[in-house]
């Protein structure tokens, strides 16, 4: 990283960390700069990597089939004109319908059948039995078609125990990932910028 790059990165990093004291103009300026850069980045990347090679170049090359996505995309963009918003329902219907259609076999296979297969496939071991009990109990916790009384109540209770362990593990991982990001930023500020770290 060049010296000017280090300084820009250090100053924007400090501006964002100033929020730890309280909301202030430096933080707000950095926040708006980040929003602007992200919006600009998304605009350039989406046009250069999708619209240009996937729509404009084929159309210029004479691929008339690309007129359909051109019209659908155009109908989506005219959503910005309040009187014409209703036309954007057509491209919305295409992506929602096609997305729903694609998701049915994909969900059935990956989220239901494969997960169930992996669960019942290892019941010969103690861990396999513990896992099977956990999956059934947790699924029963989300069974709302009947009031959770009788046998359903203790089974759902066991499900909550499994979920708490899962949420705790997820929370632990989240804390670790955020702390490692913080360590990275501190290493940058103290090492690359201020040269206080040895080695």
């Amino acid at each position: 990283m060049s010296e000017i790059g280090v300084w820009i990165t250090a100053l924007t990093t400090l501006a964002i960390y100033s929020f730890l004291y309280r909301d202030n103009p430096f933080y707000k300026a950095a926040e708006y700069l980040l929003i602007g850069l992200t919006v600009g980045y998304s605009l350039v990347i989406s046009v250069k990597t999708v619209l240009w090679p996937g729509l404009v170049l084929p159309l210029v090359g004479g691929d008339l089939a690309k007129i359909i996505p051109l019209v659908l995309g155009g109908l989506m963009i005219i959503r910005l004109v309040p009187k014409l918003t209703v036309w954007s329902r057509i491209p919305l219907a295409v992506i929602v319908g096609a997305g729903a259609g694609v998701s049915i076999p994909a969900m059935l296979k990956a989220r239901i059948l494969q997960q169930m297969g992996a669960t019942v496939g290892h019941v010969a071991s103690l861990n396999g039995i513990i896992m099977l009990v956990g999956v059934i109990a947790t699924v029963m916790y989300f069974y709302f078609s009947r009031e959770q009384k009788g046998i359903l109540q203790p089974v759902a209770k066991i499900g909550t125990w499994y979920m708490m362990i899962f949420f705790g593990a997820t929370f632990g991982y989240t804390v670790m990932s955020r702390v490692s990001l913080l360590i990275g930023r501190m290493e940058f500020l103290l090492g690359d910028w201020l040269h206080l770290l040895g080695g």
């Binding site: 989220r111 239901i112 009990v133």
Partner: peptide
């Protein structure tokens, strides 16, 4: 084991 069991149930 337990975390994967809960995750699988949620995925299902």
């Amino acid at each position: 084991v337990p975390a994967v069991a809960a995750k699988r149930a949620i995925l299902i």
